[in-house]
Amino acid sequence: MIATVLDAVSWLLLIAGSFFVITGGIGLLRLPDVYSRMHAAGMTDTLGAGLFIAGMAVQGGFTLVTAKLLIILVFILFTSPTATYALANAVWSGGVQPRRRDGTACETIDRSDGPLTS
């Protein structure tokens, strides 16, 4: 009984994870420039990986296997933004301007005078 419920939960989590991972792959192909593709890549690294690992952890139960899975997840969550920042900063320093879909340079909005109050 409990095994059936756990299997169903795992199925749900893994299917949701598959959806986000595949969406990330499609986004990587569809989005127009390297900056916007980073958002798709970030999607597979956060919720895609998280749901996959949660689905496997449900099957693992309270064992060392689950602990290792969680360590992998925490590691991905800590390194993914660092790698993305390094890439984005390299692209920016390399002089690549972000583009809109029609190819024009996108505008810069200056909010450094303080957060919005509204």
Partner: peptide
Amino acid sequence: TLYDRILAVNT
């Protein structure tokens, strides 16, 4: 670009 490839390889 090169950066697209690095992003793809990282993913």
